[in-house]
Design a protein around this nucleic acid. Structure first.
Lengths: 219, 219
DNA sequence: TAGATTGTTAATCGATTAACAATC
DNA sequence: TAGATTGTTAATCGATTAACAATC
């Protein structure tokens, strides 16, 4: 029914709205206007109203938006109520960090299992999540519908693992390798966390802010 | 001298160009046209030429771009040749992962030290990086010029640490906490890696691609 | 009711794409 | 030289901002 295509920019702002709303709820705020929200998030009220209006009419004239309603709506929009099933492939330090500290359940995801080749951890559990041998992965996927696979493996095997799991029905890959995955299945979604890209952007801005100070005496 | 402001979109594409160029160099490609590069990266040739022309004239008519030249230019633009000094605050699993696997030096950064409160690791080294007690951090900053601090601490102390290090002259913060840092110093740059934002965007697209299939029988 | 604030349409601004003369 | 491809200017497209009638 909802026709108009929603832009990437809008979508990537949604989690940030949700974080802010959680913070507001935590502080006992129960409603907020687009004006005040804009002030707190450094966005224009127009943009906020435009963004929300892509998904429905969540506000009330003269009053603003109920924090609870908006949180709930955003959770739904972001798929947090679908309890997607997740597996974690590669249990190195990063994998450990994700199991122990990320808290998939906080966002409505079910972390079913982790996979690795390190015999020392296979058969154990971390935070209640069992670790299986990677050679049982294909079997696991055939018996358990997995929506999302978190890819935290060494770069050199990233593409072969990605291809295999895509063929086994995984619908989305959360990719922590610094490889640009080449998956032939067009319906498999990939979301990248490229650490190096992010750090280099910071480095660019650092280089350029100092450059600005140095290059522009302008007197 | 270079006047025109360079947009965020352009800047965030630069690391991706660099990764692709590294891959091309690895495979022995020594020059490439914007047309071919565009094909391989799913960008228009126009966009690629526009992007590069923000920073100079790196190509040659009739020939294209030298892979080596372009790599070198992008490295410079991204600040990789400034050997920025880096410290890592919070050596949990994520901190470990960054020290051991990220390879700051691969990008031209000098990782000086890590800081934590865990007595079990203080005084030890990981991959040649010494771990100090967090209560020596302020001192350290006064004696060593630190360009970038990687923030991998628990969310509840993120803001106080960020404020302290900003006051001690850190110029950029690479923030891995899911907190929106509130730093009063306007010249301190913050680059966020918000894991949850990224996963929720993937979840949005999953919810919506399936929704599309379900909601649009259209017969 | 009067004031506040929404949802939406119109106006502006910026980013991407197309076109083409310059040139290797 | 002829063909290829750049750097850049102009045209198009899309996203952000402003304005305002509708309404709580």
């Amino acid at each position: 029914m909802k026709r108009a295509k929603i832009s990437n920019n809008v979508i990537r702002r949604l989690p940030r709205y949700l974080r802010k709303l959680n913070e507001l709820a935590f502080h006992g705020v129960d409603h907020i206007s687009s004006g005040e929200l804009g002030k707190q998030m450094s966005l224009t009220p127009s943009q906020i109203r435009q963004d929300f209006s892509c998904f429905g009419e969540f506000g009330q004239q003269g009053y603003g938006y109920s924090v609870e309603t908006l949180r709930s709506e955003l959770s739904t929009i972001l798929g947090m109520k679908r309890s997607y099933s997740v597996i974690l492939i590669g249990i190195g330090n990063l994998g450990h960090a994700l199991i122990k500290n990320f808290g998939f359940d906080r966002y409505g995801f079910r972390l079913l299992a982790g996979f690795d080749v390190d015999e020392a951890i296979i058969g154990t559990e971390f935070s209640g999540v069992p670790i299986h041998h990677a050679n049982t992965l294909q079997n696991f996927l055939q018996e358990n519908p997995v929506d999302i696979a978190v890819l935290a493996v060494p770069g050199n095997i990233a593409n072969s693992v990605a291809t295999m799991i895509s063929d086994c029905g995984v619908k989305g890959i959360w990719n922590f390798t610094n490889i640009e995955l080449a998956i032939e299945k067009p319906d498999v979604l990939v979301e990248n966390i490229h650490f190096s890209d992010s750090l280099l952007v910071l480095s660019y801005f650092l280089s350029n802010s100092t450059a600005k100070l140095e290059d522009e005496p302008e007197f």
